[in-house]
């Protein structure tokens, strides 16, 4: 599984294709986003990413951010089979995020 930077077109294709992934709405100027990015990096470095992480820069993709009602960064959307199941805002620690990613992966239809 990988960390992908997506624009609106790619993001919407993943949703239309009913993919299961974590959407990370972030901004380059946001401190908690940087720290959350490092938490994701740590999980990835351990080879424990069970789903793709799709990063969306809200300054590059304001329409997409608006569509998902993102008014705080970072905002995470847990998307299972193309459907947004849950969202969280703010910093999330590794011990909280890692099990949630496993739960998300378990919801994959394929």
């Amino acid at each position: 599984m990988a960390v992908i930077h997506a624009d609106k077109e790619l993001f919407e294709k993943m949703v239309a294709d009913k993919k299961t992934f974590l959407a990370d709405f972030f901004a380059t100027w946001c401190g908690p986003c940087k720290m959350l990015g490092r938490v994701i990096e740590n999980i990835d470095n351990k080879g424990e990413l069970p789903v793709d992480i799709v990063k969306v820069d809200i300054d590059e993709e304001p329409e997409l951010a608006q569509k998902y009602d993102v008014s705080v960064v970072p905002t995470l959307y847990f998307i299972a089979n193309g459907e947004a199941k849950e969202n969280m805002s703010g910093f999330v620690a590794e011990n909280v995020l890692a099990p949630k990613l496993k739960d998300l992966a378990a919801q994959k239809a394929e």
């Binding site: 100027w29 401190g31 908690p32 720290m35 703010g90 910093f91």
Partner: peptide, 12 residues
């Protein structure tokens, strides 16, 4: 309770 760093995290 939150991100390590406290108010540091919100300082540009």
């Amino acid at each position: 309770a939150d991100a390590p760093g406290g108010k540091l995290v919100k300082t540009f």
